[in-house]
Every structure is written in C-alpha cells, then in structure tokens.
C-alpha cells in the first residue's frame, strides 16, 4: 500500500503543479506543454484507481489529439508575443470582472461538491450504479453506456457533431482561382481527347486557335 500512496502523491503533486504552471507561465507554448503534463498525470491517477480504460482514452483523445491541435494553433498564431502586449495594455482590465465571476462560480461549485462529500459520506455510493466487479471496466462502461444511457450518449455525440459543423461553417470561405486536381478527369482522359491528327495542306499550314 505504501508504494501506492507514494505514487498517488507523486502524480497528484505533478498534476497540481503543472495546472498552476499552465496559468502562470509566460510563454503560451509552455502553458500547453504543462497542460499536456497535467493530462498525463491525471490519466496516471485514473489508472491507479483501476479505471484503466478511462486513463487510456484520456491519453488518446486529450493528449494524442486535442492537445496536438491546441499546440498547433498556439504555435501558428505566435500568441507568445501577443500575450505580453495584451497584458501591458490598459484594456486588459475590462476582462477582469468576467474572469472573476467565472472563477467565483467554479469556486462555489467546488465547495458544494466537497461539502456534500464531507457531510453525507454515502453520497457517492447512493448516486453511483451497481457494477459487477467481476468484469473489466471496459466491459462495465460498455454495458452502462450502450444500454441505460444510450440516448444521453447519442445526444452528446450530436452536440459534438453540431459544434464541428459550426466550426466548419464559421471558417469556410470559398476561394476563387484555386486550381483543383480532379483525379477522375485525369484518369479518364483518352488519347483521342489529347492528340489530334491533321492533314496539313501544302503551302498553307495550320492555324491553331487553342
């Protein structure tokens, strides 16, 4: 049990420190790298409580795909320089009330969650489902998600789809003058389309129009 506790504290310490560093570090790219470290240590914590499926999915989706795109955008936009200008500008004070409101809401939510857990110790067990401990947690999640909660599961998929379509619609613009390569027309091109055999009249030549 001792080794378990030691690893738990190591991973949680890394998670908390890197979460703080995400907000504190000056360079935006460094922030994203700390965010990745945070994701990784949280997925380690998931694996330690026996939720290996969730841990691995966390790694694949958040670290392997979402954070890569994050990093992509941050590197491309070169936000590192803009951020410094933004901080020095006077207008930054406009954003402080909004940030304060959001952080207060999150803070109270945390207090409610922790308070409920503290004063009603059977809260978690009364809300959670009874899961057969004989099966692996991949099976358990599958049994729950695809039976009792199939509608909610489908709905969340729809929400993601709508968000994706929205992003495409917002950024889509038709460019003019783009040369497109049509594989079909390339492959279906015949010898008769490309080459023409002409009998050249003597002393007159051929006039080519195209």
């Amino acid at each position: 049990m001792l080794a378990h506790a030691i690893f738990f504290y190591i991973f949680s310490l890394i998670a908390i420190v890197s979460a703080i560093m995400v907000t504190v570090s000056k360079n935006t790219v460094h922030s994203v790298f700390f965010l990745i470290l945070d994701f990784i240590s949280i997925s380690c914590l998931f694996i330690m409580i026996g939720a290996e499926f969730l841990g691995m999915i966390m790694l694949i989706i958040y670290v392997g795909a979402v954070a890569v795109l994050f990093l992509f955008v941050v590197m491309m936009l070169n936000v590192a320089q803009q951020k410094n200008q933004w901080f020095s500008a006077r207008e930054s004070s406009k954003h402080i009330p909004v940030g304060l409101i959001i952080s207060t809401i999150i803070f109270f939510e945390l207090i409610i969650v922790i308070g409920g857990w503290k004063y009603k110790p059977d809260l978690v067990s009364s809300m959670s489902l009874n899961i057969d401990s004989g099966i692996s947690n991949t099976h358990a999640i599958g049994y729950v998600v695809y039976t009792d909660y199939i509608h909610i599961f489908q709905l969340s998929g729809m929400i993601l789809l709508v968000a994706m379509i929205g992003a495409i619609v917002l950024t889509f613009r038709k460019r003019s003058g783009v040369k497109r390569q049509s594989y079909f027309s390339q492959i279906s091109r015949e010898r008769t389309d490309g080459v023409e055999l002409i009998d050249v009249p003597s002393n007159q030549g051929v006039k080519s129009d195209d």
Partner: peptide, 22 residues
C-alpha cells in the same frame, strides 16, 4: 500483461508526435 494492451500501444504511438513537434 495489461487489460487494455492495445489501447496502451495506440496511446503511446499517438504521443510519438510530441517528440517531433517539440
């Protein structure tokens, strides 16, 4: 011999991109 071996392989190979980006 872990339960989610193939997911582990997939996760680690998807992390491989970080070495290159960094």
């Amino acid at each position: 011999d872990i339960n989610v071996g193939i997911l582990y392989l997939f996760a680690v190979s998807s992390l491989g991109v970080y070495g290159i980006i960094m």
